[in-house]
Design a protein around this nucleic acid. Structure first.
Lengths: 167, 167
DNA sequence: ACACGAAGTGTTATATTATTACATTTCGGC
DNA sequence: GCCGAAATGTAATAATATAACACTTCGTGT
């Protein structure tokens, strides 16, 4: 694992149009195995399947889309099936929830706890995940000035990614 | 109107425990009238009623809570009744939607278009609305470095307000 | 004043997202 | 192998939001 990853503000950049996506998925699953092993958490078949489905695209995926896909392999899957797996993955920082879309994306740096900041393309739905300390600090600093104790930052930025929004 | 308001990072601070809340509502309605008049938009009775209900507390309010309250005065109110009013109020910047709560709060500075940043207390649900240029700039700057064109920032911070989270 | 078209609202139905409650199965430690 | 805890199956329902179409109201132009 890249030890410097925690210091980089960009945890998951916009993917190149054609990249070895199988590699992304494989790497994510491997990282998830490692994280769960470390913590004594059980990455069951079901949870692994759902995580793989989330990672199938570099886009936010909705719970009922996951459910539909999951049913291909598991005919009796129901909403709680998916939501329980998502809850587990969220709790363990393996995925993030995009509040403004009611959707979920794979986490690019599951080893380090972080809330993250997300850049989401309106056109192609691609997502980049950041963990920029300066952004986080600017929020925390102002909040503290107002006597507010920050527990969690939700930062979601809609706009156009490099491919979709030429300058 | 206070001309300096657009330059202040805090658009709506946490309210004092006991304040003249009737004044908040009255002021919000008056500001809404002014904004709509300026833009040739119609602040109908229904929209005014919904806006008043949103302003009844300095907390995010959910659509179906509004609906229930609205039915006291308007027995035939249905979901679209509320959602259409909310859409109008959102479009005109008279309220904001808190994505992480599926809820709505009154806007403290409806004259100036802004996405805002929100500090939300986990304990008492009070909300402070900011429009801090430094926070916005830290986001925009990093995004631009990545070739991302920002259209809208959603920034919602959960934590403890001064009353609920003593240092 | 009146007719017209656009905007707003009423009404019913339904789509989408998420949770509750309880039964059953699986897993890991002993 | 047995036990308790964790995970999953299953049915029902809650919570949030929108679609579609009918009807009413409003402002404008004449």
């Amino acid at each position: 694992m890249d030890k410097s990853e925690a210091d980089e503000p960009v945890l998951a950049a916009f993917p190149a149009k054609a990249h070895d996506h199988g590699h992304c998925v494989a790497e994510a699953l491997q990282a998830a195995e490692a994280v769960c092993a470390e913590r004594g958490q059980r990455l069951t078949d079901l949870r692994r399947q759902v995580l793989a489905l989330v990672w199938n695209r570099h886009e936010p995926v909705r719970a009922y889309d996951l459910l539909e896909q999951l049913r291909d392999e598991k005919r009796n899957a129901a909403p709680p099936t998916v939501y329980r797996a998502l809850d587990f993955l969220l709790d363990n920082g393996l995925i993030h929830r995009i509040e403004s879309l009611n959707a979920y994306v794979g986490c690019g740096a599951p080893h380090n706890a972080h809330a993250g900041q997300f850049l989401i393309c309106r056109d192609c739905s691609a997502v980049a995940e950041l963990d920029d300390p300066e952004i986080a600090r600017s929020v925390t600093t102002r909040a503290r000035e107002l006597g507010f104790r920050v527990q969690r930052q939700t930062i979601e930025v809609m706009g156009l990614c490099p491919d979709c929004g030429p300058d």
